[in-house]
Simulated assay, not measured.
Amino acid sequence: MGLFDIFKKKSQDSPQQQSEIIPNQPELQFVSLFFEHKPTIDKKQILKELKSRFKVVNSAEEDSSFTFFFPEYMIEMGDASIPAQGAIIQIDQKPNLERFEKAFQQSWHWDNSKIAMESCNFEINLTDLMSRTLPHQARLEYFQKFICAVVRATNPTVIYFRNSDKLLEPTDFLEACDSEQSSFLHGIMNIRLFNVSNDETLMDTVGLHAFGIPDFECRFKGYNPGEVAGALQNLAYYVFETGDNIQSNSTVQGLGKNPIWKTRYAYSKVEPSRLIVEVIPN
């Protein structure tokens, strides 16, 4: 049995059970950039970076307008079509570190995230506009290119992905995006770990829900957390890239001596509240 047999087996849920499942709805993509010193938002430099990643980029002529249009990614709205957009919003207040306490606790990938944030005094926000109906792959693709361009042009100290509650070092993010085998979920998905008891652990992904996709959750004991994280990551990448639907009451290949693990739809045990696929070890 292969890792992704889960996508081939028909659901055993009754029609009534399936109708009761409320899917995740796409949410705005929202990313914050933090700086030690007040950043210079040079529109010409941003456009230069954007044009190295997009065939066509449009923007209002006013230098004060920081909304950009990407005609390669068109959204159908009734009788009209409009391009996907990305916007830069400047914030005129010092970041409140209390809002990142949970993110600090789950920054296994960056030990110095809190130290870096403590040095920051300025913030700008990036968001996508008019793009929720795009296929999730295209939606992430264009917005990630937008983020990379703005990061290159402004040189922030910290990147924060709101939907995954994840803090990233800018060079780490750019390397993940620009590598030949792009880790395209590196920013928009976090894998979190929670100690449930002395010998039991809960691990989940967070961030896929913002694209209308179920996240994954696994409660386990006796397994290596790093290996469980790898299994959840593999599932997440497969689902996001292929768009295959996961069926409840099926199986995936897990870990250990009895590696056939069951799956079922559920609602998350940890905030944010969302539909998840629970992966159940034997």
Rank of each mutant, 00 (worst) to 15 (best):
F35A: 08
F35K: 06
E36N: 04
E36P: 00
E36C: 00
E36L: 01
E36I: 05
H37S: 14
P39L: 09
P39K: 05
T40Y: 12
I41G: 09
I41Y: 08
D42P: 02
D42L: 01
D42E: 02
D42C: 04
K43M: 07
K43G: 12
K44C: 07
I46P: 08
I46N: 09
I46T: 06
K48E: 13
K48Y: 12
E49K: 08
L50S: 07
L50P: 11
K51D: 09
R53M: 02
F54S: 01
F54R: 06
F54W: 07
K55W: 09
V56T: 11
V57Y: 06
N58L: 13
N58S: 06
N58P: 00
S59I: 00
E61C: 00
E62L: 11
D63F: 00
S64G: 02
S64W: 08
S65W: 00
F66I: 06
F68M: 08
P71W: 09
E72K: 10
E72V: 11
Y73K: 08
Y73M: 07
M74S: 12
I75C: 07
I75N: 08
E76L: 13
D79I: 06
D79P: 02
A80D: 14
A80G: 03
A80Q: 13
S81N: 14
I82C: 05
G86I: 11
G86Y: 11
A87M: 09
I88T: 00
I88W: 03
Q90L: 13
Q90D: 03
Q90I: 07
Q90V: 09
I91F: 03
I91N: 03
D92N: 15
D92S: 15
D92H: 12
Q93F: 09
Q93A: 04
Q93M: 03
K94I: 13
K94L: 04
K94Y: 03
K94V: 11
P95W: 05
P95M: 05
P95T: 04
E98T: 04
E98P: 00
E98N: 05
E98C: 00
E98A: 03
R99N: 05
F100N: 03
F104V: 04
F104N: 06
Q105P: 00
Q105M: 08
Q105W: 05
Q105R: 07
Q106N: 09
Q106R: 10
S107L: 01
S107T: 06
W108Y: 13
H109A: 00
H109F: 01
W110C: 01
W110R: 00
N112P: 01
K114F: 06
A116I: 05
E118S: 11
S119C: 01
C120A: 10
N121F: 13
N121Y: 12
E123W: 03
E123P: 01
I124G: 12
I124R: 12
I124V: 15
N125Q: 15
N125W: 12
N125R: 14
N125M: 15
D128M: 02
M130D: 15
M130Y: 14
S131W: 13
R132W: 03
R132I: 06
T133S: 15
T133F: 09
T133L: 11
L134C: 07
L134K: 05
H136E: 13
H136F: 15
A138W: 13
A138G: 04
L140Y: 14
L140M: 15
E141K: 10
E141I: 02
Y142M: 12
F143P: 12
F143Q: 09
F143V: 10
Q144A: 10
F146S: 05
F146D: 08
F146R: 12
F146L: 11
C148T: 06
